Simulated assay, not measured.
Amino acid sequence: MTPPRRRLALAVATFAFAGMTITGCGALSQAVDCNTAAAEVTTIMNEFNTTAATAATDPKALETAGKEAGAKVKTLAGNYDGEVGAALNDLATGLEGIKIDGSDPAGSMESVSKLQGFITKIQQACS
Rank of each mutant, 00 (worst) to 15 (best):
N49Y: 00
N89C: 00
A39Y: 09
G102A: 13
T36C: 04
T93E: 12
Y80P: 02
G102H: 01
E83W: 01
E68A: 15
T57F: 11
L91Q: 01
K99G: 05
A38V: 06
G97F: 07
L62C: 06
A87V: 10
K67G: 08
P59K: 07
E47S: 13
V73P: 01
T43F: 08
T43Y: 12
T93P: 01
I44D: 04
L88A: 10
A86T: 15
E63L: 07
D81P: 00
I44K: 04
N89Y: 03
N79Q: 15
D90N: 13
K72C: 10
G85D: 10
A86D: 14
N79R: 14
G85A: 10
A77P: 05
E96W: 03
L95M: 13
G66S: 05
E40Y: 06
A69C: 10
A39I: 00
I100W: 05
I98C: 06
D81G: 12
G70D: 05
T42P: 00
A39K: 11
Y80H: 09
T54Y: 11
N49P: 00
A39F: 12
T51V: 01
G94S: 13
A77Y: 03
V84F: 08
T36R: 10
A65N: 09
N89P: 00
N89A: 14
A92K: 01
G85R: 01
G94E: 11
T51S: 15
M45A: 11
A71C: 01
A55W: 02
V73Y: 05
A61G: 07
L95Y: 09
A87N: 08
I100Q: 03
A86Q: 11
Y80Q: 03
D33R: 06
K67L: 13
L95H: 07
E40K: 13
E83Q: 14
L91F: 04
K72D: 11
N89W: 04
V73E: 02
A69R: 02
A39S: 14
E96Q: 15
A71Y: 05
A77R: 01
V84K: 01
A53T: 13
